[in-house]
Design a protein around this nucleic acid. Structure first.
Lengths: 349, 349
DNA sequence: ACATTTCTTGAAACCGGTTACATAGAAGTG
DNA sequence: CACTTCTATGTAACCGGTTTCAAGAAATGT
């Protein structure tokens, strides 16, 4: 592999001059610069980024640490991150922590010296452990973590508001007995969505305690919940699943059982996965802009890198309701462009 | 940021000893090792990977250069790559070339010194340009590129065989006039699929030239093709789309027009995206294991890294037919476990 | 007891770049 | 023409690790 010394020797100059010529410094004669660039091209010289990042105290790369690389959520998130990172000329270093807190620590350690900043979507564990393993001086933004407490800026979807808004929309469309298919108990998003649902139900002061069915975000869990409802002959006129996959599973079973959706039972999900538009009827859901969240996190990190010592804010992105065929049609498509939401969106662009 | 010299000083030893103690060399006293690890823990020492990769001539990371980061294809691919990479203790460095050949070059250059090997999914351009920009000594595997010619190992889906098999299955189920919705002309996969379709049609010696409709892999293109068929009143008893999204778009329009699928017109796609199981009727398609392809590519790269100087083979992964509701039910699910296919799969594990 | 081998440790070189400082020659000034 | 200022280039130090080599200490053999 050719080094800058090879280039310098071939061009008949010192390494210092070669370095300056290649990096476009002004204090180098045109003739010399030409010789150096020619030599570099001839030898197919590519600078060694590791060595480079050692002297300049930066690597022009940022690390992204995710709990998993599965499915569309991840894909969208990375897409949003990449869009902003690419504009800023930054490379992306991806790492999978494979769920465990232990994995998070090793993944983060592996980033030291490779990246200028960190984007972390931590698993649902002890914040103290996370902070302990964070490189002290490395700019960091947390994704989807309620981290106001631990003094690190973060970006998250407002799951609570989204779930609450959907529940209120179902109530407004005339539903009385709404069942919620919950997500995994150890999942932050799921807990927040549940909380939003419960609070909305409390609001209307239903004498019944809100009906909550267990789930784990899988299609099968949604199907199982639907079977429970049918078999138990539970009086329910709407099902609000904590994510779209469960809603899809639920919808299929209800339909197969001959239950009319939305007239007998309305169905709603959360996430607005691409599939949601293609079920029959099309699934009403809460639209979350994952890519926007990634972009927002990256923008926040960029600001930190540029030295803005911004406070450890927690940016909450507002989701929007997408009312489609599985809920009755009082309103076709209802958005909630609150002033705050609008401002948020503008900041991203 | 604390360095190994800080650790050495705190532990009262030289940097050499500190390095040895931390890297688990045997020739260091237990007492000294303890002092060093204690000091490292106390100072929250994390080694600088850049400096590390400079002396050891490796970085324990591999670069993945992709044409885009959009959607599920990418996500699945990275998942497969990560699975194998993680087992081997390797980091993943992702880069988006943003479609252009120019972008490919810069992305690849940025990898120099950061990675021990390269996984590239090149855009559909001149192979010579690609080779010219490849670091000479860096182990590389190409993904989805017919690169037997340019002396670099590669892994690809056998789009030709898959398309041919599906077309033959449609013919076998009694369809006579099959229309193909083609993908973008500048897309390799699309061209191969078209070729498979055409060859299969030639085989049966139809007097008509095979009916080919233009498309661009989008849902709307599929819908447009369906409208064309309906409006033109074309005598067609099957539509084979070059990917699932077009098949989905086509299916929706046909169904809305009151055409019975599969009895009047059968529909088939390619890819087996998750959505395919959820359309109504469920979409028959060609199942490609993207994740497996990523894993295979990574395995091939690992072999290269371990010094096996394997020949520049082109591994072809065989897809399988998934016959569902949108084709008539002569056979429910037909696999083609050829001897070659079986061997291929075993090699991956 | 002394010679020889083995083991632990430290000093210094090195990986491949960048940059502070020194220097020599060119250009500018009175 | 002698003096200063400026500019292009080279020398060497440095970034933060790893590793070779040498040396001293400890263990072993005779």
């Amino acid at each position: 592999m050719t080094t800058i010394r090879d280039v310098a020797r071939t061009a008949g100059v010192s390494v210092a001059t070669a370095s300056r010529a290649l990096n476009g410094h002004l204090n180098v004669t045109d003739g010399v610069r030409q010789r150096v660039t020619d030599a570099a091209a001839l030898l197919n010289y590519i600078p060694h980024s590791g060595a480079r990042s050692l002297t300049r105290q930066r690597s022009d790369a940022i690390g992204v640490v995710l709990p998993d690389l599965f499915g569309e959520y991840f894909s969208e998130l990375v897409r949003g991150i990449d869009k902003v990172a690419h504009q800023a000329g930054l490379q992306l270093l991806l790492s999978n922590m494979h769920g465990s807190a232990q994995g998070t620590a090793t993944a983060i350690r592996a980033m030291r010296g490779r990246v200028d900043g960190l984007l972390i979507m931590p698993p649902d564990t002890d914040p103290a452990y996370l902070v302990a393993n964070l490189p002290p001086k490395l700019p960091t933004v947390l994704i989807n973590y309620p981290a106001g407490s631990i003094g690190i800026p973060s970006v998250a979807i407002d799951n609570y508001s989204g779930a609450r808004a959907m529940t209120e929309a179902l109530l407004a469309s005339g539903c009385k007995r709404i069942a919620h298919i919950a997500g995994p108990r150890d999942n932050r998003d799921a807990r927040e969505r549940l909380r939003g649902f419960v609070d909305a139900m409390r609001q209307v002061g239903d004498e019944h305690s809100p009906l909550i069915l267990p789930g784990d975000f899988t299609e099968e869990a949604g199907a199982e919940a639907a079977r429970l409802i049918i078999a138990g002959n539970v009086a329910v006129d709407a099902v609000f699943a904590a994510n779209d996959m469960m809603a899809v599973g639920c919808l299929a079973v209800l339909r197969d059982a001959g239950i009319d959706v939305p007239d007998q039972i309305a169905v709603a999900g959360f996430d607005d996965i691409p599939l949601a538009r293609h079920t029959y009827p099309a699934l009403s859901t809460v639209e979350v802009h994952i890519a926007d969240m990634g972009a927002a996190a990256m923008s926040l990190l960029l600001a930190q890198l540029q030295g803005d010592d911004l406070p450890a804010q927690n940016h909450l992105l507002q989701p929007a309701l997408m009312m489609r065929g599985t809920t009755s049609i009082k309103q076709k498509k209802m958005r909630r462009p609150t002033a705050k939401n609008q401002r948020e969106k503008r900041e991203l662009s």
